[in-house]
Design a protein around this nucleic acid. Structure first.
Length: 480
DNA sequence: TGAAATGTTGGGGCG
DNA sequence: ACGCCCCAACATTTC
């Protein structure tokens, strides 16, 4: 009798275009579908609260999809190596297949498992699938990792196209009897008291099916206008695929090929498609940076920033987190994040710039907050993007690029749709003052039924002063 | 994947 | 008619 093979699900909660699972199926051996909830993760980057909500529903969806292929998903909680050992022991499995992950601890774990299993004659194989191109496959002519996005992405497009997505073959052979599975509810991934995600199912559909539906809808309804509309937070013009991608419910290769096919049918929208694909490019770039510079989540890429005189108070941090800074576009973004687990990309830049430059608060505080509150929280993208905004990263925005929250609001939320949606106390204010209520004459405020400092805060910092302070702080590390 | 300060230009009001 | 000033509007540079 053939020994079973464990397919270990990780951040790849799908059955379509999952190379490791296809390879496992191709062996013809009885399979065990296993997911391990490992909250012993070192490095202090356990899944945040919003991610855990997503994970719960994503696992439900995966279990459903596997059921349709005749499989039961085994859920177990604990240290990955211990759980794998126990399942191997119990079932007599002598092979473990999984998808690669790129977080520093995940790489370490894979190495350790490889050594451990090899010694015992257990086959351990890792497969790509989370990225378009494996880190290491894209290098400069000198063989170094790229540190600038544009040449990186150009080099990527010179590579052979990523493989076409492959469906899971029919008639898989599943092992039984299976080890006992945990009850998903016992993992308590969902929030209670209060259940702040009570209505999130109306916003999101975690799982591969939801991901593919979202991609289709994006291609049909949104991609043609993506070029300009993607910067308008009041308009639903972005794909919203990031949380699906993070959890591996859809592969970037599926997105890549679907977008290319769409672009061939809509040649006049080639530019929009390329712009969208470049966003996948930034995701790739972040992963490449994370692999080559594993300190990125915790340490400034540019050493000069180790000396940066970060300041800011707990009180200011809290005002930012709660959307009470007195700058409407910033507060709208922070409240959208809190209410939905998501924030529009344009506004992520504005709010992050505000935290690091107007409040001079260390980018790592923002990184933490986003990590806990975003459903798409992703170590690579989150840390690289924070460093990008803070000016400390590879190919980062120059430090002195300080967003003016008023100008950004007027430029990208001209009609005030976004601010009025998330900061309803400002609804009565005319467009003219919506992004700068502190400049509104008394009568206007009265007519809007608004008392600044009571219904809505006064700006917690003065823009001009904050900007000058930020530039002065930067002056202290410049040239170092 | 900025904004502010500074520089330049050109039309129009005015003496 | 002319020079002068004001100030948008746009371009450049500086942070």
């Amino acid at each position: 009798m053939t020994s079973p093979l464990i397919f270990w699900f990780r951040q790849d909660l799908r059955t379509v275009d999952l190379p490791g699972l296809n390879a496992a199926a191709a062996t013809g051996r009885p399979l065990i579908a296993l997911y391990i909830f490992d909250d012993t993760t070192p490095g202090d980057w356990k899944a945040g609260a919003a991610s855990r909500w997503w994970l719960h529903h994503s696992l439900e969806a995966l279990a459903g999809a596997l059921q349709e292929c005749g499989a039961d998903l085994v859920l177990q909680r604990g240290k990955a190596s211990d759980v794998l050992d126990a399942v191997i022991e119990e079932t007599g499995a002598d092979a473990v297949y999984c998808s690669r992950q790129y977080e520093p601890w995940a790489g370490d774990l894979e190495q350790a498992l490889h050594a451990r299993f090899e010694a015992r004659g257990i086959e351990f194989k890792r497969f790509p699938g989370h990225l378009l191109h494996e880190p290491g496959s894209v290098r400069t002519l000198a063989g170094d990792p790229f540190k600038v996005f544009t040449p990186f992405w150009r080099a990527c497009s010179a590579l052979p196209e990523p493989p076409e997505p492959k469906a899971l073959p029919e008639g898989l052979h599943w092992h039984s009897p299976l080890p006992e599975t945990d009850n998903l509810n016992d993992w308590q991934l969902l929030p209670r008291k209060p259940d702040w995600a009570a209505d999130w199912r109306e916003l999101w559909t975690p799982g591969a099916e939801g991901a593919h539906t979202r991609l289709q809808r994006f291609l049909e309804d949104r991609l043609a206008d993506y070029g300009d509309a993607r910067d308008i937070p009041g308009v639903s013009a972005t794909s919203g695929l990031s949380p699906h991608l993070h959890h591996g419910e859809i592969s970037p290769r599926s997105i890549w090929h679907a977008t290319q096919a769409w672009a061939e049918q809509h040649p006049q929208s080639r530019a929009a498609a390329d712009k969208f694909l470049a966003e996948l490019g930034w995701r790739e770039f972040s992963y490449h940076l994370l692999v080559f510079f594993p300190e990125i989540p915790a340490k400034a890429f540019k050493p000069a920033f180790d000396e940066f005189p970060w300041a800011g108070s707990q009180k200011q941090l809290q005002a930012w987190q709660r959307g009470q800074t007195g700058y409407p576009i910033v507060d709208a973004g922070m409240r959208e994040l809190w209410a939905t687990g998501y924030m529009h990309n344009r506004v992520r830049m504005v709010t992050a710039s505000f935290l690091t430059k107007h409040l001079l608060i260390d980018w790592r505080a923002g990184e933490r907050w986003f990590w806990d509150t975003l459903v798409d929280a992703d170590l690579a993208s989150n840390s690289c993007s924070w460093q990008w905004v803070a000016g400390s990263g590879a190919d980062a925005a120059p430090y002195f690029r300080i967003f003016n929250p008023t100008t950004q609001g007027e430029k990208f939320d001209t009609a005030g749709e976004y601010v009025r949606r998330w900061v309803p106390e400002l609804t009565g204010l005319s467009d003219k003052y919506l992004h700068k209520p502190w400049e509104a004459p008394k009568v206007v405020l009265q007519e809007a039924g608004l008392t600044l400092g009571k219904d809505y805060p006064q700006p917690i910092v003065d823009h001009r002063e904050a900007r000058e302070a930020a530039l002065a702080a930067y002056g202290q590390i410049k040239g170092k």
